[in-house]
Design a protein around this nucleic acid. Structure first.
Lengths: 113, 113
DNA sequence: CCCTTACTTCTACATTTATCGAAATAAAAC
DNA sequence: GTTTTATTTCGATAAATGTAGAAGTAAGGG
């Protein structure tokens, strides 16, 4: 192989990290996590965070597609709930295993502390 | 308070996640992690990843300011090494404590599984 | 049905980020 | 001290992302 190249796992991890890489989205996520498993509607989320509806829809879509939030339609409301716990563990694992597991061999050769 | 607002920790976490939220930067980081504590020069990193020098400088600066990589000038080379291990643990911790710790109270009230 | 409510999609614009070549800087070799 | 090598800064352009108002869709109430 000529160059190191992105694996599917790396691509997925990058887009998940990107989803977390916005102050507003992290704020939304924190609000949802704090709301617990019952979740919050988009409207309530807007009230609590001061983020406009359409912007919120946009961010939530990103968080949902990264698997950090799940959305469920209830009547005319959309209830969102965080599932960050497992996801973030998975992301932390990505670097700790996908990247660093390989490093263990290398690192012992280099007398890694 | 009217709205939930970003804390310094949240702001910091967001920018760290943003640093990880790029396929190319994650590729660079993986290459560095695999290279172990000895690190790699920018030039070697360019050879291995196929990323142009100036672009690499740009990305490395981001990774370094997120504390994921450290850089050290050695003669006319700049040696970069990953310090992702602790950083990623810290980031995982951010959501697991800063966000989710508060959720524990809420969640027991809501009969969280 | 018509009206209100709750979101989503569309559209447009502003901001940020990414990319890379060329010029600048800095260390080392000669 | 001139040249080569390694990287950074600059500048310009392309692409992606963020933002929000307006219009559209869908559910529930009167």
């Amino acid at each position: 192989m000529k160059h190191e190249s992105a694996t599917p796992a790396l691509t997925l991890a990058a887009s998940s990290f990107a989803a977390l890489g916005s102050e507003q989205r992290l704020l939304v996520l924190r609000t949802l996590v704090r709301a617990g498993s019952a979740g919050l509607s988009i409207g309530t989320l807007g009230d609590r965070t001061g983020v406009t509806g359409s912007t919120l829809t946009h961010h939530l879509k990103l968080l949902a597609s990264a698997g950090l939030v799940k959305q469920e339609k209830q009547g005319r409301s959309t209830i969102c709930a965080a599932v960050a716990y497992e996801e973030v563990r998975a992301l932390a694992n990505f670097l700790l295993t996908e990247c660093c597991a390989d490093a263990i061999d290398e690192c012992t050769e280099h007398d890694h502390g």
